[in-house]
């Protein structure tokens, strides 16, 4: 493929949008897994409000924890992306 031949914009947009949607879905699968283990007791005829609140808090706090970890890791010079990882 020559360099000045550009990608089909319609397909490119389609792939970008689908990739983003799929990234979201993958995260929802993972979060449901984690929060189910954290919040779910014996399954009954409906999700009770206590479990619902637990799941909502679980999602929010998981995101907070990820953000916290990301920030802390970025502030630690040991883990700078320009140097190889070192475990001590």
């Amino acid at each position: 493929m020559s360099e000045n031949e550009s990608a089909d914009p319609q397909l490119e947009n389609f792939i970008l949008a689908e990739t983003q949607k799929q990234r979201f879905q993958v995260l929802v699968h993972g979060l449901t897994d984690t929060c189910w283990d954290t919040c779910m007791g014996r399954p009954s005829t409906r999700l009770d409000s206590k479990t619902e609140v637990c799941i909502m808090n679980c999602v929010e706090r998981f995101i907070d924890a990820t953000t916290f970890i990301t920030k802390r890791l970025m502030n630690t010079t040991k883990y700078r992306s320009d140097s190889p990882l070192e475990f001590q």
Binding site: F24, L27, V28, H29, L31, T32, C35, W36, C39, M40, R46, L47, T51, E52, I55, M56, V59, E60, I63
Partner: peptide
């Protein structure tokens, strides 16, 4: 139900 709730919350 949990999946949908997680999806909405996220």
């Amino acid at each position: 139900d949990a999946w949908n709730l997680v999806s909405r919350t996220y």
